[in-house]
């Protein structure tokens, strides 16, 4: 779970994008984050994912106050506790689909053989049926996004942060992705989804509106 306490953040010396935000996101739930563009939905996810350092406030992840952690410790938490899904897949175009899925294992310490096994299983679960040695340029956008979802779920994170995960997907691919995120939540993960899409938000257990 994530406890966010009095969190404030702005880019550089600019105005605050997130200001005095507090919320507790329990494990085992899928929570939507909505609001107009520019209100800090993605920024909130990046703060929760320890990619940004807040101006003030705390992010407590599974009971660990991350505000006092060093960069290596925050990175270690990201590699073991957090899974990111970006709006576009952000895959490594020079490497195979399977290599993309298991990339995080290099940083989490997961053995390559176990990672490959899990990666193949995840790809099958989200119906990516193309050969796993294909490059991202040889698959569709929907398949690429599902590959990115598999990458986020490889190390069975306790927190999954999805930024418009279905924004570039057709309805069928979106349903597959959301179903897999639901499975992760049912397994105990805290799933946060930033989205404009009401069909996505309707499938969440709760919605936080940033306005």
């Amino acid at each position: 779970m994530i406890d966010i306490v009095a969190l404030s953040f702005g880019y550089g010396a600019g105005p605050a994008v997130v200001e005095d935000f507090s919320h507790s996101f329990p494990g085992g739930s899928m929570v939507g984050i909505s609001g107009p563009s520019g209100r800090g939905k993605s920024t909130l996810l990046y703060l929760a994912g320890l990619l940004l350092q807040p101006r003030s406030g705390r992010v407590v992840l599974d009971g660990i106050d991350t505000s006092v952690l060093s960069d290596p410790a925050r990175s270690r938490l990201r590699s073991t506790h957090i899974g990111f899904v970006f709006q576009d897949a952000v895959l490594d175009t020079g490497r195979s689909i399977l290599d993309n899925v298991i990339e995080g294992s290099v940083y989490s310490g997961l053995s390559r053989s176990v990672a490959k096994q899990r990666g193949r299983a995840l790809l099958a679960q989200v119906n990516v049926s193309v050969p796993i040695d294909r490059r991202p340029g040889q698959i569709s956008g929907g398949q690429a996004q599902r590959v990115a979802l598999c990458r986020a779920l490889l190390h069975e994170p306790s927190v999954v942060l999805a930024d418009e995960p279905t924004g570039n997907l057709d309805r069928e691919s979106a349903d597959l992705a959301l179903a897999r995120l639901r499975t992760a939540a049912e397994s105990g993960a805290c799933v946060l989804i930033a989205s404009h899409d009401h069909q996505v938000l309707d499938r969440c257990d709760d919605t936080v509106v940033l306005d």
Partner: peptide, 12 residues
């Protein structure tokens, strides 16, 4: 950026 999100530290 992706590697950082996946858990790579600056040193790594």
């Amino acid at each position: 950026g992706r590697r950082r999100a996946l858990g790579a530290s600056r040193g790594q």
